[in-house]
Measured scan of single mutants.
Amino acid sequence: MSIQHFRVALIPFFAAFCLPVFAHPETLVKVKDAEDQLGARVGYIELDLNSGKILESFRPEERFPMMSTFKVLLCGAVLSRVDAGQEQLGRRIHYSQNDLVEYSPVTEKHLTDGMTVRELCSAAITMSDNTAANLLLTTIGGPKELTAFLHNMGDHVTRLDRWEPELNEAIPNDERDTTMPAAMATTLRKLLTGELLTLASRQQLIDWMEADKVAGPLLRSALPAGWFIADKSGAGERGSRGIIAALGPDGKPSRIVVIYTTGSQATMDERNRQIAEIGASLIKHW
């Protein structure tokens, strides 16, 4: 067993022997301040990774656009098919120029040779490549099948209805392509620590998230040296922004954090800054 596999296998073990965790309302004060600064709703939840206990939450059962955070769930569904012998990570998928959609920095470079399922998941999570996500959605049967996968996990809230990039439209009061912070946090925890996926697939999923290259201005910008984070960000229309993450000190994750916002007129930089400040408060009061 590799060191990384050992780390993920012992996530519940280490967490069980940690000192009790206590909620700190100071972080919620910052979440509410972010709402004021952005002029928009902000949803927040913080779960203990081992027990699933909610440590703090704000608007945990209000719907927010998922945006690209759905790509972690998508690759979880792909990995479940791999575990069941219905898919192979090494299978190569070929596609054409007509398949390319807006923001496809990886797939646009491989029109000639195609990409493997493993490479597509890596591109979808680490670079948020939209064509990679659409190609992977095709392998599982489309958005409705991802929703069905989530329902089978016990998540009857999260739903995907459309493809990239239309799913980022974020129309107010439109339930399409949305989740709730509580539902997303619980589902992410199941994917990373539950028995739904094999140990190898859980490790692969967290490795992809740990290698995320496009979430630097968010929670990662607030992390002290030595902290662990595996995350996936999302951005959408109407001032929408979000991030889902597993993080913790001492090089291992111990909490799940989900943050979503929508309806702001603020710039992307300002949305990023507010999420980073929430992260800084979380870490300060850990």
Rank of each mutant, 00 (worst) to 15 (best):
N134L: 09
E35V: 11
S122L: 09
T138A: 08
A200G: 07
L47I: 07
T186E: 15
F64D: 00
R41E: 02
D113K: 08
D161E: 04
R271W: 14
S281E: 10
P25H: 14
V42W: 06
A211H: 15
K213C: 02
H156K: 10
L196A: 06
G236L: 03
G154Y: 02
E169T: 05
L137I: 06
T193A: 06
L247S: 06
L137D: 02
A124S: 13
L135T: 08
I171P: 15
R162W: 06
G234Q: 01
E61D: 08
E164L: 00
R118A: 10
A34I: 06
M127P: 01
D174G: 13
G85N: 05
F58D: 15
L28Y: 12
L218M: 11
N168P: 13
C121P: 00
A148D: 11
D161L: 06
E87R: 10
F70N: 11
T112P: 14
N168A: 08
A84D: 05
S96L: 13
L89M: 14
G248S: 08
R162M: 09
V117R: 07
L223E: 02
L247F: 06
I283S: 05
G114A: 07
A77M: 15
G114E: 03
L136V: 10
D231S: 13
T27G: 15
P165H: 15
E145I: 06
S221E: 05
A222D: 10
T116Q: 11
R63E: 09
D269N: 08
V101P: 04
L223R: 06
N50S: 08
Y260I: 02
I171M: 15
P224M: 11
L89E: 05
L49K: 06
N168W: 12
S104L: 01
F228Y: 08
I243C: 15
W163L: 05
S104G: 12
R81M: 07
N152W: 13
E175T: 05
L282N: 06
P249F: 07
L218W: 13
V106Y: 15
T131C: 06
D33H: 02
I206F: 04
Q88C: 02
F70A: 09
L247N: 01
A170D: 02
E26G: 15
A182G: 11
D212T: 07
N50V: 05
L160Q: 08
E210D: 15
M67T: 12
E61P: 01
E145Y: 12
S80V: 13
T139F: 05
N98Y: 13
M268E: 13
Q97E: 09
R202Q: 12
F149L: 10
G239V: 01
A183I: 12
F58H: 02
V106C: 15
S128N: 00
A225S: 11
Q97D: 15
R189F: 09
N50K: 09
Q37D: 07
L167G: 09
E56I: 05
H285C: 10
S281T: 05
R41M: 13
H151F: 04
S96T: 08
K213S: 03
S104W: 01
T193P: 02
D129F: 00
R271E: 14
P143D: 12
M115K: 03
G90H: 15
Q37E: 07
S128P: 00
D207E: 07
S57W: 12
L247I: 15
S221D: 13
P65L: 08
P253S: 06
K53H: 12
A200F: 14
A123P: 00
H156V: 07
M180V: 04
S264L: 08
G194K: 15
A34H: 07
M127L: 09
T262M: 10
Y44K: 00
W286C: 03
T27W: 11
L191Q: 04
Y103R: 05
L199T: 10
V29S: 13
P165L: 07
T112D: 13
F58L: 11
S281R: 07
N50M: 15
S233Y: 11
H110K: 13
